[in-house]
Computed example of a mutant assay.
Amino acid sequence: MTSSTLSKNNAAQHLAAPFLTTVMQIEPQWIDYNGHLNMAYYNVLFDRGIDQMWLELGIGPQYMKERNGSTFTAEAHVRYLREVHLGDPVQVSVYLVAADEKRIHTFEELRHATEGWISATSENMTLHVDMNARKTAPFPPDIAARIREVAAAHAAVPRPDGIGRRIAMPVK
């Protein structure tokens, strides 16, 4: 395989819409007294999924070390839709919904990896932070271009149910 072919294949992987994580397993210590995944560990799985996507965008741990930039979650909305249990294989689908110079809006679905049903969703607003100043800052031009490219690819797929939902009591 030539480096040009490899580069094109790598670009296609970056543009996968939605981004799919590796299959993950529920860990025994994450099961609560109700016999299912404790609510806190849904967030661990979502965070691991985002970490995998951030690597693809070039904003993972190496980015922090080399360029002193990172991301902080500013807001999250998790919906718990169906229990997952010890032994269930899970996978996170990440949609890059929108982005601007300092923010990334994502929507994630935690799915049973073999049966395909959705267990939970998480919608997040993430801020880019200059770690030297510990303040929000624009993404560097190369990273911003990559984010725009992925956002455009993700805009071409149907939006999953639940984006933009708010917490409220049902109207009677």
Rank of each mutant, 00 (worst) to 15 (best):
T5V: 15
K172L: 14
H36A: 02
Q91A: 04
F19G: 07
L86P: 01
L55Y: 12
R165I: 13
D47K: 05
V129I: 15
P28G: 03
H154A: 05
N38A: 04
M1R: 08
A153Y: 01
R165H: 13
Y33K: 04
A133T: 14
R67K: 13
V78L: 02
M24P: 07
A76S: 15
A155I: 05
R79T: 08
M125P: 02
T5Y: 08
A120V: 03
E149R: 10
N124H: 15
S93M: 07
Q29T: 04
I50V: 12
P89S: 07
G162K: 07
K135A: 13
V150E: 06
Y41A: 01
N34S: 07
A17H: 02
A145C: 01
G87N: 04
A152W: 06
H14R: 14
P138S: 00
K65E: 15
I147R: 09
P28A: 09
E108N: 10
A113I: 02
D47M: 02
K65W: 03
T73A: 14
S4D: 15
A16M: 10
N9F: 10
E108V: 09
R82E: 08
H14P: 03
L20G: 13
D142L: 09
R148G: 03
A99S: 15
I147H: 09
N38D: 01
L86S: 03
A151N: 03
E66A: 10
V90L: 01
V150D: 02
H36F: 00
Y33N: 05
P170V: 12
D88M: 02
V44G: 02
R48V: 09
V84L: 01
T21E: 11
R159L: 02
H36I: 02
Q91L: 00
A155M: 06
L55E: 14
P138K: 02
Q25W: 04
H36P: 02
M53G: 04
T2Y: 09
A144C: 07
G162C: 09
L37H: 03
A120R: 05
S93F: 12
R148S: 05
M131P: 05
R146E: 13
D32N: 09
V150K: 04
T2H: 03
V78D: 07
P160E: 05
E56P: 06
E27Q: 15
H14G: 01
A76G: 10
S119N: 00
P61F: 09
H105N: 06
G116A: 14
V92F: 00
H85D: 01
K8D: 13
P141H: 11
L86N: 01
K172E: 15
I147Q: 11
F139C: 08
G116C: 04
Q91C: 06
A151M: 11
E109F: 03
V78P: 00
R134T: 05
N43M: 04
M64A: 15
R134H: 04
G58Q: 09
A155K: 06
L55P: 03
Q91K: 03
Q52V: 05
V23L: 10
P158D: 12
M53F: 14
Y33M: 11
V94L: 14
H154E: 01
Q62P: 10
N124D: 11
V23E: 13
